[in-house]
Amino acid sequence: MPATKREMIAQLQKELLLLQGFKPPAANAVQIGLGPVETAFPNAVFPTGAIHEFISDAAEGVAATGGFVAGLLAPLMQQGNVCLWISASRTLFPPALKAFGVSPDQVLFIDLAREKDVLWVMEEALKCEGLAAVVGEIKEIDLTASRRLQLAAEQSRVTGLILRYQPRRLSTIACVARWKITPLASEPGNGMPGVGFPRWQVALLKVRNGQPGVWQLEWSAGRFLSVTPHRIAPPVAEIRKIG
């Protein structure tokens, strides 16, 4: 019977996740409100207390990523906790955060001269328990450095977000998900003129123990709104020749 088989597989998957250290979400876990995107993650919950990586190729993508990240920060900072935004070349405009539900005076911006210092500050910040999130703009990061960040995040349960603009190499790093946010044409609806709510194509290129996919989301009325109810075909991995 296919139904029971599917149930069995789902049950086995749950047990596997438990064995791999993914605990079922706590009752007081923060609701990020990503809608269908969250189904891509294990237990269908956005993993907090871990490192997420965001890739962007163009300046417009950086802005879209900034908006999406601000939307993620809003529920994390709900209880008045502070967020750190660490960068060596920041172009984020603080007053814009308010449109995504983040109070800009709750964000500490740390502007450094060298990328190396960004990693140090980010690790120190991730060790500080109770912070809402730590955002770091780093162009290049290797596996060792990212693993240090991931370990610090696991210890303190602080969410770390790495924003990478035009990275030279996309090597594997120790993060739970790799995102790519690109802007989409907005649709005000009803044939209204002017620019509508920000709309993005949210691509999850890699998810640890999850299903990658592509979604279209819109930020309206202070929350994420799914534009396409279903997952678009996942990005096709490059076929590598063997041998």
């Binding site: 300046a59 900034g66 984020l92 405009f93 007053p95 814009a96 308010k98 449109a99 109070s103 005076d105």
Partner: peptide
Amino acid sequence: WRNDIPRPVRLLP
């Protein structure tokens, strides 16, 4: 903080 006027996420220096 003003929320009623559109402001860009990235501002050029």
